[in-house]
């Protein structure tokens, strides 16, 4: 097995790798933002004291935590078009919607986990905080928004960063439906050139760079924003 670093600079290889990396990053950022927003919505929904709402949210979370991510992507990509109304389905069949479906699937998947992480953070805040917020006249939602949630997010930061790391790695699952992210391109280059070792090494290093960056961000947050004193 020879290792030729120069191979990585030849032909289409750099542009393929780069486009794969860009797609990975776009997928990651898009899914993360969608996930975080939906997670906040789920947390807010849980404050509504209606049993059907709570049960729906619980079912949503349970589904996304117990079904593998790639299966969730498949349910969206293969399953959803069948139930969409006719004109939408035609548009879907004619466009490059793999990326969109992957993003939605990954985003909702991560939102379920994030909402649970934020909930644990909320549970860690002493009840007296909520009492104090309510006694100055804030409603349930306002109390959540201005008092408990900001504190909860700080406590939840470690599991949230861990979940971001998992999301970053899960972007590779999108290749199963044909999204041209980094792993897909690695396979494509390998099929073209049969030079597995160099391209695997390059992509491994790229993934490690991303993972270690995320872990580093986690460590930085942990040291600069230690969990607040609970008095």
């Amino acid at each position: 097995m020879e290792f030729q670093l120069s191979f990585l600079a030849s032909g289409d290889v750099p542009s393929l790798l780069l486009s794969g990396l860009m797609t990975t990053l776009r997928l990651f950022c898009g899914a993360w933002i969608l996930g975080f927003v939906v997670a906040l919505a789920l947390v807010a929904l849980r404050t509504i004291p209606l049993a059907p709402v709570t049960m729906l949210v619980a079912a949503f979370v349970a589904y996304h935590r117990n079904v593998p991510t790639v299966v969730q992507i498949m349910v969206w990509y293969f399953g959803m078009p069948a139930v969409l109304p006719e004109p939408v389905r035609l548009w879907v069949n004619h466009s490059d919607t793999e990326f969109l479906f992957a993003l939605v699937a990954l985003g909702l998947n991560v939102s379920a986990y994030m909402s649970e992480d934020i909930r644990s953070g909320l549970r860690a805040i002493p009840h007296t905080q909520l009492e104090a917020a309510r006694s100055i006249g804030l409603g349930a939602f306002a109390a959540l928004r201005y008092v408990t949630l900001p504190q909860a997010i700080r406590i939840s930061l470690p599991p949230l960063i861990n979940r971001s790391l998992i999301l970053f790695k899960d972007t590779s699952l999108a290749m199963a439906i044909g999204v041209a992210e980094l792993t897909y391109q690695v396979k494509a280059i390998e099929n073209l050139t049969f030079r597995s070792f160099e391209v695997f090494t390059a992509s491994t290093l790229l993934y490690l760079a991303g993972s270690l960056t995320l872990m580093g961000i986690g460590a930085w947050f942990a040291s600069h924003y230690p969990p607040p004193y609970r008095g």
């Binding site: 790391l165 590779s172 690695v186 491994t204 993934y207």
Partner: peptide, 15 residues
């Protein structure tokens, strides 16, 4: 530990 937690399972499978 850091290496095999930092790359997707599918990369490990390809390797």
């Amino acid at each position: 530990v850091y290496t095999f937690r930092g790359i997707p399972l599918i990369m490990i499978i390809f390797w």
